[in-house]
Write a protein that binds this DNA or RNA. Sequence first.
DNA 1: CGATTAAGGGAAAACCTTTTCTCAACTGAG
DNA 2: CTCAGTTGAGAAAAGGTTTTCCCTTAATCG
Lengths: 347, 347
Amino acid sequence: MASDDQPVPVFPKPVTLRDVAAQAGVSVATASKALNDQGRMTAETRERIRETARGLGFRPNSLAQSLLRRRSFTVGLLTNDTYGRFSLPLMSGISDALVDAGVSVFLCHVEEDPRLGQLHVEAMLDKRVDGIIATGKRIDRHLPVDLSNLRVPVIYAFTQPDPDAVAFVSDDGGGARLAIEHFRRLGRKRIAHVTGPASFAVVHERARAYRAVLAETGLPVIEPLLGAWSEAWGHEAVARLFDGSGERPDAVFCGNDQIARGVIDALRERGLGVPDDVGVIGFDNWEIVAEATRPPLTSVDMNLAALGREAGLTLLSLVGGKPATPGIRKLPCRLVVRQSCGRLPDG
Amino acid sequence: MASDDQPVPVFPKPVTLRDVAAQAGVSVATASKALNDQGRMTAETRERIRETARGLGFRPNSLAQSLLRRRSFTVGLLTNDTYGRFSLPLMSGISDALVDAGVSVFLCHVEEDPRLGQLHVEAMLDKRVDGIIATGKRIDRHLPVDLSNLRVPVIYAFTQPDPDAVAFVSDDGGGARLAIEHFRRLGRKRIAHVTGPASFAVVHERARAYRAVLAETGLPVIEPLLGAWSEAWGHEAVARLFDGSGERPDAVFCGNDQIARGVIDALRERGLGVPDDVGVIGFDNWEIVAEATRPPLTSVDMNLAALGREAGLTLLSLVGGKPATPGIRKLPCRLVVRQSCGRLPDG
DNA sequence: CGATTAAGGGAAAACCTTTTCTCAACTGAG
DNA sequence: CTCAGTTGAGAAAAGGTTTTCCCTTAATCG
């Protein structure tokens, strides 16, 4: 008896179409058609069945539907971005694009272990996901998983695609251009660039844009400083830029917001004011950092949610059988202006 | 013709158990039993069927299995934590606990809109998730969704549970105790506490622990400063603590890592060294912040992955039919010692 | 050698929904 | 009154797997 007084929560049996049909006094076929606006029957019958379904709280079993339609109305989002800094905004955009089609998103975090990753992919395929979106920590890094020759369409977003795949990435060169041109419009003359390690493709792409804009406008190019994606590197880079005897920068374009943060801290320690003496622009627009910086950081936003939306819509049309031409599509960045870059004297 | 040269990628038909059976020359029933180690047959037959399945690359259709077993081997993780700062570590712990049971996790982000949230929950139920784990931004905040009386078991992790539910939260009081006692062991005499807004239950819980430890050890209590969860507030709080004429703190225990960061910056601006003049300990151990702080921040870690693991295991046993006594279970925090708190003089 | 038992394997139902096909009844026209 | 055509609704198959029950054959025992 002692083991009996623990109330075992009993979960009610889900109500099936059969139950609805029985209660309404029709066959399951008719019930199904009534609820899906299919087939022919009197408006009265249709309404009666619907009313019964509502009353019973009937919800169709997606599993059964999926089995029949050979689609699960689910897509998998594969990522190895531990902190979700890039994958969560992306996911939010994807969900956004898919929710109207009744499709949900399955976030699947794959560690660096390729075996475990492959396992997760298999699990998704077994669950008959309609498609997979792959994303990573950085645009030019591969996921530790092989996604070629899968049974479902694959889209790459913000990560290095396989050849012949469809991919969406941000236009980092354009983003850099945005930042530098903004500095130029504000009248900055000596614009430096502090960025991440040479092993990242985007580092070179942005540096190219940096040089190009400066060349176009006749401003001097300061050799970009390549280092790490960290605050500490931003700090150190300021020492390199400002310790020399040469003319000093009046603006720094940084490869990410953490570097920018380190730059700003270092400038303050040197008694240089931001934005009055030196303007600073970051990259990523990681709000939680950009807004906490003093002064709040102007930063290039990669529009990850929009990227996710595009990826989602494209995947959807791929699932629908419409072919998509493979290749990399670049989506524009936008500049989020806060206070670290300064403003026009007359503004 | 022009529309014909676009190669439409054709995805191979998945191979079914029927295919395996046909190729092996047995019935589907036998094939199924062979692959699942059920039924009786010669070892030779079993092996032959397995070999055929391997050769064909057969993978059972989870949808069909789930339909039959009335379980999807999927659990939903519901969150409204936009940046994933808390939900991702949690999810990683949950996945960890469930992967051995072959269960995957469905991350579902519900915005503040309750209607959309309810919609997502319905979608998960329709997909026949085995259970749901709810989590939020902060321990004492409700999700904008009603999860009572669902058809599946629900576990709350790091969010305010419904009454009679099973919940796991971190022991914030214990975490505070850890920090203060560490300061005391290091010989700090005047320990201040700068924390978040009064509207959070954990703020009071930690403040209680703060007072308790100080009272136990005979150290003076400085009235905790309640403000916001931001760097700016940490900055401002330093002004309040150090501008007065009274004796100054030699240690500050902060409500989160961002506050700690603001505190450290403000101290540096005042010419006070961390940890030599003032020790600082944060809360959350958000590595990306804690490690970037100069000096690297000692912080209380809430062990979210462990929390997730516990939640996952408990949900699993609930799904298995074993009852769990409702109530809130607190899991211990741990102190991650870096350099901002100082060390023993003789250490 | 006949009868019993065990072993090996198959048929069919079940899970739940959708869809096509079929069928009965009824309408209106000739 | 008969026939074509329409309307309303049900039967059945399909989707892929698991499991129970049954049947056949071979082996064992008396």
